[in-house]
Write a protein that binds this DNA or RNA. Structure first.
Length: 663
RNA sequence: GCUGUUAUAGCACAGUCGGUAGUGCACUACAUUGGUAGUGUAGAGGUCACGGGUUCGAUUCCCGUUAACAGCUCCA
């Protein structure tokens, strides 16, 4: 809040002579203005066009209102809707217009908060009713009136006492005011007769807010805590141009078409039944996909020096007490009684792996020891959190635990970062990285946590990653680096994670014999690359819109005989393909060829080959590829070589996929 | 788990202002033996999610349960 402080300090100096301020613009130009010139006035001076579309400013990297006077030399940027900060101010103004409209229509409503978000804005209301679609339409109309009224948006500040008095009828605002640190400027924005507590920035007038739409309503807890009252939230989105709004709404519709739950059903990959909420069934096609991923994973990890193990799904209570899960993860665990003793279904693979480590004596020469496990874990997730394959109650983690000497930590983390980067890039994913620190409910010494967290930060810095810190979001046994991938609607899902753990080796009293002949404690890393095979399948299904690259596709080639006279030749073709490890299927049905092609295309099969009399006589196939459409006839062995090399090169090919299913 | 919405054939959906239900695709049979995005005809398939209540009568109205969907919270 440095600009606010500047504003205050300087107001005491107002008696002094007007000084000039030197500002440096985004393009590096230096300009001189009278002290007290506002950001807006600078914009107007630069160009009236810029001033018209300006939404906010940025002083020395800090987002500010256009009305803010410049009192010190600084770097200044004028932000429009095209800039993140400008977009934020624009949409935040939308939240205020929404609140004003709701207040006009429902005077008894109590206002909570209403920020801009990545996809638009929302406002939380405390009201006895719930908003229907019809209500949303009415509110939208009311918002349009406010926009048409072209209210100037003004801002002012008040002392705490005055602010509390002004907001006397708004209990949530009072709570917010009381939560502000002592001495903080309490700022308000006003448009027409609507006043809201807000740090800003905002637009100058409501008239610019034309291209918007209210999208949905939802329940949301006050201050995001499930202990608090649930409020009614209205979501909306807005753009500076109507065409952009239209394009965005169309994009949402497009994204729905590639929802993995819809495609999973259509492509017969998986089903989730009422009999097992959150427990997916994999169908033959989904199983092929899953096994293809696993095969890739095994190849990758073998090269990277991992050894694969498998540990039991059910283990006794004693083990979970030792690991700390019984105390810290109990509510997510499924338990059972066997021979009158307590057992738990594993929610994580680590304790089992600990036992494997302890099953023999290790020398420092064995380290780092990288033990992978495709472990099936079960976790009781809240019913409302379940979401197709993205959030399930049993899933296969592509887990690995790495035991090492303390001086091997950085190198190992870097190895894993590179491995994850290789895999995500291969699929063409963009991802975000976050570091999560010590949570409230945790085990182990503070100093150990600090060392662990620092070594994660060091590795990230060394590799030049941009990362965000999530305070208090770590696992109960250690800090972690999380890798987040986006789904088709822009929601992010945690996939890869690297977790440093000094606790479990301690609890399980793991040891290795050092070069000094003495026993020492190894350090451990937990890590996953896909995260869970299930979630990853969900994400790649949406990413490829079901048109999986040939190496992954459940069926690589669909053979379509023109009629059953050519079934034998079709068999011959499919056999030769399958012999080379190319998954081929034959559609024997006595349907018209056009019909069979249509169905095969709906299945997103990479290659369709049509065989009839002509092909049989010349030992050729008529090829139709997903990428290029009808390609004509090729000798069978030429086609086989082509597909075989495409599968072997895996990712070198998929980036070219362009067809109506992958837009 | 919380707030809201929803639940009709394998799938996508109509419908019944309370008198036990239809369309398309898929499925089965027959005919059609075909050349790059949907062949024709016929047939079979549903205690209208489950449990209560109101009613002469409930798939329809009310309550509860379960599940799904959107969001919140939580997470791989």
């Amino acid at each position: 809040m440095s600009y606010i402080n500047r504003e205050r300090e300087d107001s005491e100096e107002e008696f002094l002579l007007n000084f000039m301020v030197n500002i440096i613009l985004k393009d590096g130009t230096k300009k001189e203005y009278d002290k007290g010139t506002s950001v807006l006035e600078v914009a107007q001076n630069l160009s009236s066009g810029l001033a018209r579309v300006a939404c906010a400013g940025k002083i020395d990297g800090e987002l500010v209102d256009l009305r803010i006077p410049l009192n010190d030399d600084c770097n200044l940027e004028i932000l429009t809707f095209e800039d993140d900060g400008g977009k934020w101010a624009f949409r935040h103004t939308g939240a205020h217009i929404l609140a004003q409209a709701v207040k006009n229509l429902y005077p008894d409503v109590k206002l909570a908060i209403g920020p801009a978000i990545q996809t638009g804005f929302y406002y939380d209301f405390d009201i006895d009713k719930h908003f229907t679609e019809e209500d949303l339409a009415n509110i939208e109309d009311e918002m349009k009136k406010i926009v048409k009224a072209k209210y100037d948006i003004e801002t002012f500040t008040l002392s705490k006492e005055e602010a509390l008095k002004l907001m006397a009828d708004e209990p949530y605002k009072i709570e917010l005011i009381n939560d502000l640190p002592e001495g903080e400027i309490i700022r308000f924005y006003k448009q027409g007769d609507f006043v809201d507590l807000c740090a800003g920035p905002h637009l100058l007038n409501t008239k610019a807010f034309e291209a918007f739409k209210l999208l949905s309503t939802a329940g949301a807890y006050w201050k995001g805590s499930e202990k608090n009252k649930m409020l009614c939230r209205i979501y909306g989105t807005a753009f500076s141009k109507k065409a952009d709004l239209k394009a965005y709404l169309e994009r949402i519709e497009e994204a729905k078409k590639r929802d993995h739950r819809k495609l999973g059903k259509e492509l017969e990959l998986f089903v989730i039944m009422d009999e097992g909420p959150g427990f997916p069934f994999f169908l033959p096609k989904g199983m092929l996909l899953k096994n293809n991923l696993i095969e890739y994973w095994r190849e990758l990890h073998q090269k990277a020096g991992y050894k694969e193990i498998s540990t039991p799904i059910i283990l006794n209570k004693e083990l979970w007490l030792t690991s700390g899960h019984w105390e810290h993860y109990r509510e997510n665990m499924y338990t059972t009684i066997i021979d009158e003793m307590d057992f738990a279904v594993k929610p994580m693979n680590c304790p089992g792996c600990m036992l494997v480590y302890k099953s023999k004596l290790h020398s420092y020469k064995d380290l780092p020891l990288r033990m992978g496990e495709l472990g099936l874990v079960h976790r009781h997730e809240l019913s409302g959190a379940l979401h197709g394959l993205m959030r399930v109650r049993n899933f296969t983690q592509d887990d690995a635990h790495i035991f090492m000497l303390p001086n091997q930590i950085k190198a190992e983390i870097e190895n894993i970062m590179k491995l994850i980067d290789e895999v995500y890039n291969a699929f063409g994913f963009k991802y975000r990285v976050e570091i999560s620190t010590k949570p409230e409910d945790s085990i182990g010494e503070e100093s150990v946590w600090e060392t662990a967290t620092q070594s994660l930060i060091d590795a990230m810095t060394e590799l030049g990653y941009d990362y965000k810190i999530n305070e208090g979001d770590g696992a109960f046994y250690g800090p972690k680096i999380d890798f987040k991938l986006e789904d088709s609607l822009g929601r992010t899902w945690q996939c890869g994670t690297i977790q440093l753990d000094f606790q479990l080796p301690e609890r399980f009293e793991l040891e290795y014999i050092g070069s000094d002949g003495e026993k020492h404690r190894p350090v451990m890393i937990h890590r996953v690359v896909f995260g869970s095979i299930e979630r990853f399948i969900g994400i790649i299904t949406e990413h490829f819109a079901g048109a999986f690259p040939t190496w992954l596709a459940p069926v690589a080639v669909k053979v379509l005989p023109i009629s059953d006279k050519y079934a034998e030749y079709a068999n011959n073709v499919a056999d030769q393909l399958n012999e080379k490890g190319i998954r081929a299927e034959i559609d024997y049905r006595t349907e018209k060829i056009g019909y069979k092609i249509r169905e095969a295309r709906m299945e997103r099969v990479p290659y369709i080959v049509v065989v009839g009399l002509e092909e049989q006589e010349t030992n050729t196939v008529s090829v139709r590829s997903r990428q290029k459409g009808e390609e004509g006839s090729f000798p069978l062995n030429e086609f086989i070589n082509r597909v075989e090399s495409e599968i072997n090169t895996r990712f070198n090919y998929h980036t070219n996929i362009t067809n109506e299913f992958s837009k």
